[in-house]
Design a protein around this nucleic acid. Structure first.
Lengths: 248, 248
DNA sequence: CGAGCGGTTGAACGCTTTCAATCGCGGTGG
DNA sequence: CCACCGCGATTGAAAGCGTTCAACCGCTCG
C-alpha cells in the first residue's frame, strides 16, 4: 500500500459523499507528506500539543484514545486506510486525544496543515468535502455513544463489527463478509467500554452462534444480516450516498 | 430571550473559537428564520427526512436522541441557548437523529439552509467558524464516549454536570456554581446511559456529599473543583480559546 | 379531588467486572 | 535445534455495580 494509493482511497471516500471536479481531485492527490511507520504504543500526536499536520492512514489500523486518571483507556474512533484521522485538527490544532496504532504495523502520511489550508482556500468544494468528512466522523461518534450507552456487550460487539465491515467494504479493502480487523481483543474491549475478559467471552459466544468466524486477524461473517440484527445495526449513517444532493 | 439575543449568543460562541470581522458577525446576526415553540416529545426534525433548515436554540434545552429497536433511548447531545443544534445538517441534510425538547418549554429558530449556504459562500471565515463549531461538537461527543464507556455512574454524572455548567457559564447564562438544568432525571439518565432509578440514587449521593444542591431545575455547585475531581473532568476540550491561533 | 408525572426508596436479580490461572504460539538466546 | 519467555487468547469462580420490579410520596393541573 503506497502513499499514492492511500490518497486515492481518501479521494474516493470524499467523492462518495461530496462532489468534486477532476481538478479538485487532482489537487488532493497532489498532497505531499512524510510517510512514517508508527510502532505500537507510541503517540502519533501527543495530547496537549499543537499539531501542524494531519495524518492519513496508509496501511494498518489506528485509533483515538481517551485516558482516565486511573489509567483506564477508551477508544473513541478507529481509522482504516484512506481515513484522514486528524482532519479535524485543521480546525482545532490543540490536540486533546492520543492517536496510536492498533495494528502491529501502521504506516501513515503526515500532511502539513499548510497544504490542506491552501487547498481549502483555493477550492471551496474541497473545504466543503473536508467539512462533510468531519461531520461524517461525528455521525459515527454519535452511534458509538448509543452503542456504549445503551447496548449490552453482545449487541455492542456485533454493532462494531458491522460498522467496521461496512467501512472496510466501502473503502474497497474487503467485503462485509470477509475482512481484517487489525486489533487485539483488549483493544476492541477499549473501543466498546468493556473488559478484555468479557470481550473474549462475547466473541466466543458470537463464534459459537456462527455469527463470526475469526482466524487471527481475519474475520468472516457468514450471515451479515443476522449479525446486523443482533447489533441493531442500521447502516444509514455510513452510507451517505449522494442521492440527497440531487434534491437541491 | 428573543430571536436576536439567541443569534447574539451564537455569534459570541463562534467568536470564542474563531476570528470574525464585524461585517461577518453582522451577516450572521442578519439571519432570519421562523421562530417556533416546541412542545415536549415532538420531533423538531424527524429521522429519515431531508431537512432544509438548521435549528438555533433560543430558550430551553434540546437534545439529540438515538433510539434502539427495543425502545431504549440514548441522548447523544444536549443543546442550550445559542447552540445551532442542527448545524451539521448543512453538510448532511439526511437526518439520522431525532431532535427534541428537554425542557417543558423550548423555543427555537429554524434558519433555512439556503441562508447559511449563502453566508458560507460569501464569507470563507464564516464557513471556517461553522466548520470549527461542528468539530467542537464532535469533541464533546468524544468525551461522551469516554464518559459512558469508562466511568461509573457517579463519575459520569459529575462529569456531565461539569460540562453543562461550563458551557452555560461560557454562554453567559449562569455561573459554574449556579445554573439551571432544564431536564428531568430520566432525561439525564438517557444522556448517561443509565436507568432513571439509578440516576436518582446517584444524584442523592452527590447531594448528600454536598457536591450538588438541587432545587427543582436550579443546580448549585458549592465546590466546583471537588465535583470536577469526582468526574475526572478536564475542561480543555471546551475552552478552545483563541490562544493557539496566534501561533499561526 | 382524582389523575398523572416526577421524584424517591427497597429488595432481588443479573450482567459485567475482578481476580486468578492456564494454554498456545512466535520470537529469542543459548 | 530447542528451551525459555512473553503476549494474546481463554476459562473458571466470586464479587459488585447497576438494573429491574414494585411501591409510595408530593406536587400540579384539570
Amino acid at each position: 500500500m503506497s502513499v499514492h494509493s492511500a490518497l486515492d482511497l481518501f479521494v474516493r471516500k470524499l467523492c462518495q459523499r461530496s462532489c468534486l471536479t477532476e481538478e479538485e481531485k487532482g489537487a488532493i492527490l497532489a498532497l505531499e507528506g512524510r510517510e512514517a511507520e508508527i510502532p505500537p504504543h507510541q503517540d502519533i500526536v501527543r495530547p496537549g500539543e499543537l499539531t501542524d499536520f494531519s495524518c492519513l492512514v496508509v496501511s494498518g489500523m489506528a485509533a483515538r484514545f481517551g485516558q482516565l486518571p486511573d489509567g483506564l483507556r477508551q477508544i473513541t474512533a478507529v481509522y482504516i486506510p484512506g481515513d484522514m484521522c486528524d482532519l479535524y485538527s485543521l480546525m482545532l490544532p490543540k490536540v486533546e486525544w492520543a492517536l496510536q496504532a492498533l495494528s502491529a504495523r501502521l504506516t501513515i502520511i503526515r500532511v502539513p496543515h499548510q497544504q490542506l489550508k491552501d487547498l481549502v482556500q483555493a477550492y471551496p468544494a474541497v473545504a466543503e468535502a473536508f467539512w462533510r468528512d468531519c461531520v461524517a466522523d461525528a455521525s459515527i461518534l454519535s452511534q458509538w455513544v448509543v452503542n456504549v450507552g445503551r447496548r449490552d456487550a453482545r449487541k455492542r460487539t456485533a454493532h462494531l463489527f458491522c460498522e467496521l465491515s461496512l467501512r472496510i467494504e466501502q473503502a474497497g479493502l474487503g467485503s462485509r463478509h470477509s475482512f481484517q480487523v487489525l486489533a487485539i481483543q483488549s483493544q476492541l474491549a477499549d473501543a466498546l467500554g468493556m473488559t478484555p475478559v468479557h470481550m473474549n467471552r462475547v466473541m466466543r459466544a458470537l463464534r459459537q452462534d456462527n455469527l463470526l468466524i475469526v482466524q487471527g486477524r481475519d474475520v468472516q461473517v457468514p450471515d451479515w444480516d443476522a449479525l446486523a440484527a443482533v447489533g441493531g445495526f442500521e447502516g444509514g449513517y455510513l452510507e451517505m450516498n449522494q442521492s440527497w444532493r440531487q434534491a437541491h
